[in-house]
């Protein structure tokens, strides 16, 4: 939620998904036609969830339409695994919200 607020304060329009299942996340991203999908996960299930989201996006043929970011309590050992799945960047504990904003601004218009 800090992240949502931080991005909003940086002038972005943030759609808060709450606690959604994979289908709902993908459906929201498509309908709202967002630039960035941000997944925040603290439950230790980040690998499984991210994989499911990305697979569903691929299935719908829209994976490359979005910039996908993952944050939360993610062990650094999993950063690479997530990036290989197709996540643009991963943010662990202690992240400064400014850095997220910077990354989004730099990567979104590509």
């Amino acid at each position: 939620m800090v992240v949502s607020r931080g991005l909003r304060d940086a002038g972005m329009e943030v759609i808060f998904g709450g606690f959604q299942n994979v289908e709902q996340i993908v459906e929201s991203a498509i309908s709202e036609d967002v630039d960035v999908i941000g997944l925040s996960m603290h439950s230790g299930a980040h690998l499984a969830y991210t994989e499911r989201v990305i697979n569903l996006l691929k299935e719908k043929g829209v994976k490359d339409h979005f910039l996908i970011l993952v944050g939360g309590v993610i062990p650094v050992k999993d950063f690479l695994v997530l990036k290989e799945m197709g996540v643009a960047n991963v943010y662990g504990p202690g992240t400064v919200v400014r850095d997220i904003v910077k990354f989004i601004v730099e990567n979104i218009k590509k």
Binding site: G11, E13, I15, S28
Partner: peptide, 29 residues
Amino acid sequence: TSPFTGGAFLGDRVRMTDVSLHPNIFIRS
């Protein structure tokens, strides 16, 4: 939209998860 930062937080959709996956509906914030 926040008049100060130009950002916005779109929170309506969270309340519509019951129907959001139905094929005959389209929701846009």
